[in-house]
């Protein structure tokens, strides 16, 4: 298959970016999207130019490191996949493919298609955990957890932190990301003691870092490679309201 690629190039955070056009030929339909970029990069090195920088690591859809905005969609034209799991068979021969970095104010561009997503870690550091230290915890079976609750918590916990939800949202809202963590821990008895403080702190941090509010368009849910449900946002809102009204602990 042959393609024309329009790729965002930007030397560093301060430099002015631009689209560059590349032609690429004889790509197998079974080639993954990132392998197609590897082929492009190898040809750029052969031409003595600088390859396109893009983040990637596990290449099996679980580390959340890759994330490209392809033809106007985070992770491109397939459902429930990360960019690394996208294959060229999803495109048509001769197509022009536009590749951009995640676009969101809290995710500044580092170089080309690489963005800084440390804001995600900063929100987790505000309380996206249960404050236990190593050792001195009860037996794993001491607290039975209803199967459906454990399963629901697992669905929320399967977030890979790629940021597609934020890139998809016109407000760059991080509510699906934060909501998933808040929900996972709120569903489990172990997470209850800190639930009220957790949701308040994480929401405050989310606002402080410049993530917008929910637009209710559910683009986040539609583009999430792990199919995390928007009900996680509702749950977070509920937890937040309860924390503000009922809880004695406020921040």
């Amino acid at each position: 298959m042959d393609f024309t690629l329009k790729i965002w190039r930007q030397e560093n955070q301060k430099a002015k970016g631009r689209f560059e056009t590349y032609k690429i030929k004889d790509i197998s339909p079974d080639c993954s999207f990132l392998e197609m970029l590897d082929i492009l990069n190898e040809s750029l090195v052969n031409k003595l130019s600088h390859p396109v920088c893009f983040d990637n690591d596990c290449r099996e859809g679980i580390c959340g490191m890759c994330g490209l905005y392809i033809n106007g969609r985070p992770h491109g034209p397939d459902d429930a996949v990360t960019t690394c799991q996208l294959h060229m068979r999803k495109f048509t021969d001769g197509e022009t493919i536009t590749i951009e970095p995640w676009r969101a104010k809290p995710f500044p561009v580092i170089r080309d298609l690489v963005v800084d997503r440390t804001a995600l870690d900063k929100m987790i550091q505000e309380g996206g955990y249960i404050s236990v230290t190593s050792g001195g915890v009860p037996d794993g079976n001491a607290i039975p957890i209803p199967k459906h609750k454990a399963d629901q918590a697992m669905d929320s916990a399967s977030c890979i932190g790629c940021g597609a939800c934020i890139a998809a949202c016109k407000n760059a809202s991080a509510m699906l990301f934060v909501g998933a963590k808040v929900t996972q821990l709120a569903l489990l008895p172990q997470g209850k003691p800190e639930a009220a403080i957790r949701v308040q702190k994480m929401v405050a941090k989310m606002d402080e870092l410049g993530f917008g509010n929910c637009t209710n368009t559910y683009a986040c849910e539609a583009e999430c490679p792990k199919e995390i449900k928007r009900s996680n946002i509702s749950r977070m809102n509920l937890e937040f309201i309860l924390a503000k009204i009922v809880s004695e602990e406020t921040i």
Partner: peptide, 14 residues
């Protein structure tokens, strides 16, 4: 396993 459960890891349950 105990540590993981205490951290809120949603291990499979019966």
């Amino acid at each position: 396993i105990d540590q993981g459960v205490a951290q809120g890891i949603p291990f499979a349950r019966d």
